[in-house]
């Protein structure tokens, strides 16, 4: 399932709901990304995240579908927020479950690496010294490329 929403969420509640009734699942990995309160030694007062309604959801679904093809048997939940957020708030949540741990670790990493570089979002940091639009870093791109190269190994 993919959810793109402006509302804040509780990662614990989401994980419990996701795992309810999944008696066959022997492993689950979840990741929650939070809004950082600093960037390049500057304090961040808020983060504004733009998305392209409809397109963003479909692109994230493509990332999810690729992960499910590469790691058959996994199930996943992806939540991503848009709009204005303040430091400490959750911004993204990924949970992956399956029978065994290796697939869920790998798939969760794959999903996050590709959300970081390929999901149609545009971030604006409202810093103490002004506002800045953010682009992915070289390290973000490299992580996604490594995960592509190693997937299925």
């Amino acid at each position: 399932m993919v959810r793109v929403q402006s509302e804040i969420f509780d990662p614990g509640d989401e994980l419990n709901s996701f795992m309810a009734g999944r008696a066959a699942a022997g492993a689950v990995v979840c990741f929650t990304g939070h809004v950082r309160g600093f960037a390049k030694d500057k304090s961040v007062n808020a983060l504004e995240l733009d998305h392209y309604s409809g397109y963003t959801e479909s692109e994230i679904a493509k990332i999810r579908d690729t992960a499910h093809r590469r790691w058959p048997g996994i199930e996943s939940l992806i939540i991503h927020r848009y709009g204005r957020m303040i430091p400490g708030e959750p911004i993204v949540f990924v949970a992956v479950t399956s029978e065994h741990r290796q697939a869920v670790f790998e798939a969760a990493t794959y999903l996050m690496d590709h959300l970081k570089t390929s999901a149609p979002f545009w971030k604006k940091e409202i810093r103490s010294d002004g506002t800045v639009w953010i682009e992915p870093t070289d390290a973000d791109y490299a992580a996604g490329q490594d995960r592509d190269n190693n997937a299925g190994d």
Binding site: V92, K116, F121, I134, E135, D140
Partner: peptide
Amino acid sequence: VAFMPPLSGG
């Protein structure tokens, strides 16, 4: 139509 600048990512 959407004109999309470089993505910031999630």
